[in-house]
Every structure is written in C-alpha cells, then in structure tokens.
Design a protein around this nucleic acid. Sequence first.
DNA 1: TAAGGATAGTGTAGATTATACACTGAGTCA
DNA 2: TGACTCAGTGTATAATCTACACTATCCTTA
Lengths: 229, 229
Amino acid sequence: MAFEYEYPRAALTVDCVVFGIDEGDLKLMLIQRKLPPFKGKWALAGGFVRVDETTENAALRELEEETGLKNVFLEQLYTFSAIDRDPRERVVSVAYYALVRLSDHEVSAASDAQDAAWFEIDEHPKLAFDHQGIVDLAHERLKNTLRYRPIGFELLPERFTLSQLQHLYEVILDTTLDKRNFRRRVLKTGLVIETGEVQKDVAHRAAQLFSFDKELYQKLKKEGFNFEV
Amino acid sequence: MAFEYEYPRAALTVDCVVFGIDEGDLKLMLIQRKLPPFKGKWALAGGFVRVDETTENAALRELEEETGLKNVFLEQLYTFSAIDRDPRERVVSVAYYALVRLSDHEVSAASDAQDAAWFEIDEHPKLAFDHQGIVDLAHERLKNTLRYRPIGFELLPERFTLSQLQHLYEVILDTTLDKRNFRRRVLKTGLVIETGEVQKDVAHRAAQLFSFDKELYQKLKKEGFNFEV
DNA sequence: TAAGGATAGTGTAGATTATACACTGAGTCA
DNA sequence: TGACTCAGTGTATAATCTACACTATCCTTA
C-alpha cells in the first residue's frame, strides 16, 4: 500500500560520536572526508540510511565501513533537523554515540573516508557540518549518564585498577575525585570484583586488578540503576 | 549543489506524546485517525515533515492542526526507525513529548483528525502503529526527568497548593510520598513562593496557594539542575 | 449550632550518606 | 640505600533521608 499522494522525502543520515578511552584519557574518533562537501575536513563517521535498514543498523554499518569499528554499543543521542545543516540539500541526521575501549579497537580508514583516527576530546581539528554541536551534546550526555549509571566499566580493559577507573571518571567528568571516597563507593556497588592478580612491569607498587561483574550489571540494568557510582 | 547520485529518501514523520495534568491526574492526548491506515483508530498526533521545516516545527504544526494545542513546550524523545512500523512503506518518525496544563488547553479536532481527546494515562484505547511503545518510552522519560528536574511546576495552574503538586508527583511517579518530607524538599529548592492567598470554595480548610519562581527556574536551568525535588 | 468530615499544616529522632582529610606500604630505579 | 611513584587505608563531622501522628481550620449537615 502506497500513500495516496507523494509526501516530501528527506535525505536521512546517521552520525556517530565514538568516545574511546586510552589509559584513562578520553578520545574521539573522527574521519577525514574523501568527498565533497567538506572534502579533506574531519567529521563524524556516518552516512546515508538505506530503506531496508534501521538507523541503528545504518550507524553500525557506516562505522564499520569508515573506521573498521565493529560490535560497538551505540546509544541514540538526538535527531538534528536544522534546514541548512547540509549545504547540498535538506538532510536530517540521527546521531548516535558510543563508548569503546581503545585497546580493543584498532581503526582503519576505508571506503568513504580518507582516514580515520582518534583525537583528544578537547584538541581536535575543526569539524565539518554541525558536527561540533553534536559532539558537545554527546559529551554532555556522557557526563550525565556517568553520574547515574556505571557505564565506566565498559570502557576499561577486562582487568583494571581502581586508579584507572577513577582516572576515567575524572576525565569524563572533568573534575578530581577523592581517592578514598571513590573507592569506597565503587566497591559498595558490588560491580567490581577482585581478581587476586596485580599489575606487572610497573615502576612502583603494583595495584590490584579488578574485573567487572557483568551478571550483576545486567541485573541492575533491568532494574534501572537506581543508584549512583 | 545536489548529490552525485540519488540516495534513498525516507518518509519522515513526527509523533507527539502530549501529557496533560487535570487536578493532578495524568492524561494523554490522542487523536482519532480520519484516513487509512488505522482509519478510525486512536493514535498520537503527528504527521509528515515538510522539506522547509525542522522536525520540531513539524511537530508543533501538526499538534496545532490536529488538536488545536498551541505554544506547547516540546522535548525530543527518540527517533523510531523499525522497517515495518508503517504498513504503507518505510517511515521514520521523530517522537516528541510535551507537558501541558489541561485547564489551559481546550482541544478541538481538525483537519487530519476526526477527533481529539484526553484519556487517562492507563486507560486509553489501543493505539495505531507502534504508538503504544512511544507512549511507554515517553512515560519512562517523564518519570526520570521528574526525578532530576523540577518540571512539575510547568504543569499546574499559576497558583497551586502543595498538595496538588504532591499529587502530581505521585501520579507521574506512580507512588506515594510523605507529605512532610515532600513539602520540606520542595520549599528548600526555593522554586515555590507563597502568594499569601488561599483556596476558595473548598469544603475543608483552605490551603495556601503557591506560585512558581520562573526567574530562579531559568537560572537553575542554565546551571543544569544539580539537585532533585 | 454542634458534631462530623475533609484536608491543611507542622517537628523530631535515628539512620544513612557525603565529605574532608594525611599518612604508611610496596615496589622500581639510579 | 635512598628517592621516587603510586597503592592503599580510617575516621570524625556535617548533611541528608526516612519514618512517623497529631492538631488546626473550614465547611457541611443534621
């Protein structure tokens, strides 16, 4: 069944704000555009949505095509629809954001992108389109989400030290935290478990390695994370 | 400048979940569809986005056309893109939600809608398309937002009693609250101010009427509402 | 006009949680 | 072996949350 008359169609795209953590530093994945407009400029990974895929699938597909990133957990951020946000014609874009461990994700430019690379969150080239606004909103959302949910765990290596976790929080929230209070609160959630192992090859006292209780995480997720870290 | 080749175009719509408060009861605005598909069924107000308007403007326009509601504060909820969510063809929809005072908003069916009316939030007809899912998500979002921000004030008459405000919170959160603790917390925010007036024509002791400090609200809004009510 | 019904309005004690704060321990390296 | 680096730990105070029950005021109606 088709429409009785033709409605206007919008060009629909997706954009992906991918945050990465590298030893506790917050990075941002960008691609260099191979085609006009903004050819050669850095931008968010993304592209057009096909008629036989959801926006989320489009985001996953574009992310893999342009950066090589796979199996990324994407969360929908916002839909941008300013009339002149694309110089070519009217383009509406659904933005997603994601958090990945940098160590798990080597990146490789492909297809539509000349290059793909990680940048420091506060020190990256000027972005094409309205992408800076999208990044800012994603960063805000990330901060707010971190305050209410234990998302930090998804960003660290399988085994991590509590100092690494704290550093992660400090970087994302752009603040400093009290070490004792932080540890107390984190341990109280029960989401981190001692592995009995310690760091190796560090030039100081080796810290204990913890891992993340994924089962408990899933359980708490269902209940809506009614606590803070 | 046009695209070098034709990208697929998606039919893009908006849907509006409008919550209303009537003496502290939470209602939902629905329209009865005049056209197929789902002709005669109840659904969210909404419709197609034109190429010369943002999704937000489309939502405002459709809301006014279909229900007569004007000057509503809409907040973007989520973009739905399941492939078969519309039986006609691929339609992506950007959903918005809003909160209005029922007393301010008489509704009137118009144009695309046969009828428009308020329903109890937990007692409304089966909805067309995937609209029930949209309503559920909006209700969840509403609850979460209420926990972190003083949105309740926008929903009551200019002058309201603290019991009305509490009732509102209880209805939205679907819980009961302790009267003394609630009052203490609300007053501590400084967002409600005594008007010196009291209720009239009530069959019991008249309650004091409060109003809402809009200036302070704007100020706190800029700072990100780092408190709870 | 007195009694009853309805909602308004108020305080406190105890438990829990948040915050501020500084030193010792263990390992590496020169 | 001394210096450096980060790991790891406890407590006291303040702030906040929670649970809880009675009196006050106004209207209604018998």
